[in-house]
């Protein structure tokens, strides 16, 4: 396992499936990323967090993992809200979805997604999510081995 200074960073995971939250944790662990995870299990909670960030109530997340298909406000709404945020509008976002249609992908990028992760059905592929998160964090926050 790798260890580095990315561990003090915080991630906002917008995901309603506890199983997928578990797998996200596994993927990050596999990559040696022990970032702080904030979980929102519906879109409204995620938007409330972003509102609170903008109001100075809490620190801005360093990266968002947003499932497209979450209850109340869907992932697209969360992404739209994020991009309007004065404090964290430029934060990298990985949109996640079980389906992988060209239309969904296109729409996600139009709304400002940094990456699109189609949730795979093999363990090895799912673990790739950790690598993806590392690359994005390093691009923004630099490497420190």
């Amino acid at each position: 396992m790798k260890r580095d200074n990315l561990e003090q960073l915080s991630l906002l995971v917008v995901e309603d499936s506890p199983a997928d939250v578990f797998l996200v944790r596994e993927a990050l662990k596999e990559e040696g990323l022990s970032c702080h995870l904030k979980i929102a299990d519906d879109g409204e909670k995620a938007i409330n967090i972003l509102d609170d960030v903008d109001a100075g109530g809490q620190d801005a997340p360093n990266l968002l993992l947003v499932d497209l298909n979450v209850p109340r406000q869907n992932g697209e709404h969360v992404l739209e809200r994020l991009r309007r945020s004065p404090r964290c509008g430029k934060t990298p976002v990985v949109m996640m979805s079980t389906s992988d249609t060209a239309a969904e992908r296109k729409r996600a990028f139009e709304l400002g997604a940094t990456e699109y992760f189609c949730k795979p059905s093999t363990l090895a592929e799912f673990m790739q999510l950790g690598k993806l998160v590392r690359v994005l964090l390093e691009q923004r926050h630099g490497t420190a081995a």
């Binding site: 499936s17 997928d20 079980t98 795979p120 059905s121 093999t122 799912f126």
Partner: peptide, 14 residues
């Protein structure tokens, strides 16, 4: 239906 199925496959592997 694909979502729980995908999770089933991944967790079995896990």
């Amino acid at each position: 239906l694909r979502e729980p199925l995908r999770q089933l496959a991944v967790f079995t592997e896990l």
